[in-house]
């Protein structure tokens, strides 16, 4: 028996070492679920604030130029807080999982993963900032979705490969959103909220149960 199993085990070992050294496999499904929940809450608050601005029933009025500036500032704050909350929660759950798997949270695979995500996101951030300056607000939601989709596709080489489906989903939503520009917030909530949660549940079901 020993002899017949040895080559098979050796190949299994080889496969394991190749995967473990090139992919960060501790990304937790819970991270996706938490980030998605943050996005849904943020989208809900944003829709309330925009609505009350439109009917002129906020602390600031639609009629004055100050009102638009105040709304812009408020929306920026919501966006910033959402990003920090989503990132922190995602980090906590992935950190917990890497402890459980007994792999370091900061090794060569994580560094590679971070770079592959950050570069498309930073490029996207410049694009979106310029769009805001030019007051092309309708293209911000599709811009977020498209650049995030590209970042995920890029990352899929260095972590659980299934994340590419999340990337395809964001890309499709982002591209559709380009032609349904008045539904930006809906598309955004669908992509960053619903898709993250679906992906998170799927990953949890597949790897962590």
């Amino acid at each position: 028996m020993q002899e017949t199993n040895a080559p098979f085990e050796a190949l299994q070992d080889i496969k394991k070492m190749m995967e473990r050294s090139s992919r960060f496999i501790s990304l937790s499904g819970w991270s996706g679920i938490m980030a998605g929940s943050c996005a849904l809450v943020a989208a809900y608050i944003t829709s309330i604030r925009i609505h009350c601005w439109e009917i002129g029933d906020c602390l600031f009025s639609k009629l004055t130029g100050d009102g638009a500036e105040a709304l812009k500032l408020e929306l920026f704050t919501i966006a910033g807080l959402t990003f920090v909350a989503a990132f922190t929660l995602a980090f906590i759950f992935t950190y917990r999982r890497s402890k459980k798997n007994k792999v370091p949270i900061w090794d060569a695979t994580v560094k590679r993963l971070m770079w592959s995500v950050m570069i498309p996101l930073i490029a996207g951030a410049f694009m979106l900032l310029r769009m805001i300056e030019l007051e092309q607000y309708q293209l911000i939601a599709p811009g977020c979705l498209i650049f995030y989709g590209i970042a995920l596709l890029n990352a899929s080489k260095y972590t659980l490969g299934e994340i590419r489906f999340l990337g395809y989903g964001q890309l499709i939503l982002g591209i559709l959103n380009l032609w349904y520009e008045s539904y930006g917030l809906h598309f955004w909530a669908l992509g960053f909220g619903v898709l993250h949660i679906i992906y998170g549940v799927w990953m949890w079901w597949k790897y962590e149960r």
């Binding site: 496969k15 070492m17 190749m18 473990r20 050294s21 792999v103 060569a108």
Partner: peptide, 19 residues
């Protein structure tokens, strides 16, 4: 060898952790 097949370059410490 398996690790080096899929990583262009890897440090002693990373190898130690992985193995």
């Amino acid at each position: 060898m398996s690790i080096l097949m899929v990583n262009e370059e890897i440090s002693f410490n990373d190898l130690k952790q992985l193995m």
